[in-house]
Design a protein around this nucleic acid. Structure first.
Lengths: 120, 120
DNA sequence: GAAAGTGGTTTCCCCTAGGAAACTACCTTG
DNA sequence: CAAGGTAGTTTCCTAGGGGAAACCACTTTC
């Protein structure tokens, strides 16, 4: 008789696992959280502004990640009717719901640094 | 005159960005959060137990991810002196500090599902 | 002594995430 | 008309993440 899954073999856990995968998939990649974090801090930034704010990102990646985030309604893209045409990227209301998550991520990371540093 | 970073060019933001990178790097990969989540739910599981609980993971990945997590002191590995030698994996006290983060991840993912489903 | 269970390691192979750099296109300023 | 700013796209390349399957070692059970 084969053993089977015990803990995760309940609808509740399946849903929770699914949810984790969903969230991670939406936030996947090296840059999405940095972009979101930056847009949460300083609302309304142009493409070049973002590239300047986020150290190390190339235009290809920035462009691609912004498209992903826009598709998921986390970021809005507005083309402005200015003389040299500019684009305004901003966090959406929905994107802002990620704030608590990003804060958890941040505080845990800071405490991790301290614990590693402190134990040496 | 070149423009420079405005928002992220403060020590506080540098540290926050760093922290996000740290956390994401520790939790990177397809399986780590599933492993941690499973171990938080059902403390003390054997290798095969874990593989049964986590749908789709192969032994290579499970082994590698567990080593990573052990290195970061999030998971403990104890070889038991039983007749067929068994190994007990468990969440450490430190690993348990990830609970709030994992919960945020989960609830956000669940609400995401609902919002996508509800808007159609 | 073959099967099945413990806990993994090793090999092979594929795909994609991501970087560098060049290029497009349009507008303004010197 | 060149330089520099806007906002990207395209191409080329490679390190690595991750899957499938075989393999190892050791023990108990049938």
């Amino acid at each position: 008789m084969k053993k089977k899954s015990v803990i995760n073999d309940t609808p509740v856990c399946q849903i929770r696992m699914q949810a984790i995968s969903d969230t991670m998939s939406i936030l996947s990649g090296k840059w999405k959280l940095h972009i979101l974090g930056t847009l949460i801090e300083g609302s309304k930034l142009g493409f070049m502004d973002l590239q300047r704010e986020i150290n190390g990102i190339g235009s290809k990646m920035l462009s691609k990640e912004l498209q992903d985030l826009e598709l998921n309604l986390l970021v809005s893209r507005t083309v402005m009717d200015t003389k040299p045409i500019t684009v305004e990227y901003a966090i959406t209301e929905y994107g802002a719901t990620l704030s608590p998550l990003i804060n958890e991520l941040t505080t845990w990371g800071i405490e991790y640094r301290q614990s590693v540093h402190g134990s040496k």
